[in-house]
């Protein structure tokens, strides 16, 4: 997929653990792990809102668009 989640990088910058962040945004560890490892198929706007609020960042800091090499997008 062309969208890459940069959650792990932002979490490392803020020095926050997965469990702590999950607790703060009221998400399960497994769901946050899906997001962190880039396995997620879709991201709810309210989840993105909660992440930005707790991590003090912009959506663009969490997501990055990198076109696939085959150009499929």
């Amino acid at each position: 997929m062309a969208i890459i989640f940069r959650l792990d990088r932002v979490m490392a910058d803020r020095k926050i653990s997965l469990g702590e962040l999950a607790r703060r945004i009221d998400l399960t560890d497994s769901n946050l792990s899906i997001l962190k490892t880039g396995k997620a198929r879709a991201l709810r706007v309210n989840t993105l809102d909660a992440l930005c609020r707790e991590l003090g960042c912009q959506p663009g800091d969490l997501l990055e668009y990198r076109p696939d090499e085959d150009g499929a997008g």
């Binding site: 946050l32 997001l35 997620a40 198929r41 991201l43």
Partner: peptide, 8 residues
């Protein structure tokens, strides 16, 4: 179901 499970 898979789509639902992978929606965060």
């Amino acid at each position: 179901q898979e789509e639902h499970d992978l929606t965060v």
